[in-house]
C-alpha cells in the first residue's frame, strides 16, 4: 500500500480545495492518521473507497474522542541575553488549545487486503459547532457506530439515516463519555470503598464525633 503522504497528495488532487493534515503518532505502532475538514470529508472518503489502488471498502472502527480545553506546554530553546552573554536558554512556552471532539475512522480493504488508513474529522468546539459529515452512506458499518458516538459524545452527523440514541434510553439528557460528565450519586453503601469512591460515600453519612 502506498504511504500516507502519497495518499494525501492524490486525495488533494482529486478533491479540489481539500487540505489534509497528517497527524503523527509517536508510539511504536506507527499508525499515522489523516485529518480532513468536515466539508470535504465525504468526497475524500468516497475517493478512498472507490480508488482502484486503495479500494478501502471496509470501515472497521468508528470512535469518538473528547479533548478538553488544555494548556500545552513545550520546551523551546531561545537565544537570550543572560548577564551580558548571549546564551541558548530553554524556555517553557504555554499555548492555550481550545477543546474539540473528534471522530476517528479505521479503514481497511477486504479486496486488496491492506490497511489501515485512519481518517479523522474534528468539530469546531465542544459546545455549539458539534456536527460532522456522516460516512454511513459510503460504509454501512458506520451506521450503529456513529449512532453510538452521537449517544455518548453528542456529535451530530449530517446525512445519517437514523440518528438517535442507541445505548442509553431516549429521554437521557447527557453525553456520558465526555470528560466533564457528572455521574449520578448513588454510592450510599460501599462496603470496601477506595480512593475517590470513599469520599463520595462519606458525603452520605453524618460527621461522626471522635470520642477522646
Amino acid at each position: 500500500m502506498e504511504t500516507l503522504e502519497q495518499i494525501k497528495t492524490r486525495a488533494e488532487r482529486v478533491v479540489p480545495g481539500a487540505q489534509l493534515t497528517i497527524i503523527k503518532n509517536d508510539s511504536p505502532s506507527a499508525q499515522h492518521s489523516l485529518l480532513v475538514a468536515v466539508e470535504h470529508a465525504f468526497a475524500v472518503a468516497k475517493f478512498l473507497r472507490d480508488d482502484p489502488a486503495l479500494r478501502l471498502d471496509y470501515c472497521s472502527n468508528v470512535s469518538g474522542v473528547d479533548f478538553l480545553d488544555a494548556e500545552l506546554s513545550e520546551k523551546v530553546k531561545v537565544k537570550k541575553v543572560v548577564d551580558g552573554v548571549e546564551k541558548e536558554v530553554e524556555e517553557v512556552r504555554k499555548t492555550k488549545r481550545a477543546g474539540y471532539l473528534e471522530v476517528v475512522y479505521h479503514l481497511y480493504s477486504m479486496s486488496l487486503k491492506h490497511g489501515p488508513v485512519i481518517l479523522r474529522q474534528r468539530t469546531g468546539n465542544r459546545s455549539d459547532t458539534v456536527a460532522v459529515m456522516s460516512l454511513t452512506p459510503l460504509w454501512r458499518s458506520a451506521e450503529f457506530q456513529e449512532r453510538e458516538v452521537f449517544d455518548l459524545y453528542g456529535i451530530h452527523f449530517y446525512g445519517h439515516p437514523d440518528l438517535r440514541r442507541i445505548l442509553m434510553w431516549d429521554g437521557f439528557k447527557d453525553h456520558p463519555m465526555r470528560k466533564d460528565y457528572q455521574e449520578p450519586d448513588d454510592y450510599e453503601y460501599e462496603p470496601t470503598p477506595h480512593d475517590d469512591v470513599c469520599d463520595k460515600t462519606k458525603a452520605h453519612y453524618p460527621k461522626q464525633e471522635v470520642k477522646a
Binding site: 503518532n25 509517536d26 508510539s27 511504536p28 505502532s29 499508525q31 472497521s60 489501515p116 485512519i118
Partner: peptide, 10 residues
Amino acid sequence: RPKAGEAYGR
C-alpha cells in the same frame, strides 16, 4: 506507562 500515541490492534 506507555509513550503518548495511539494504536489499533485486532
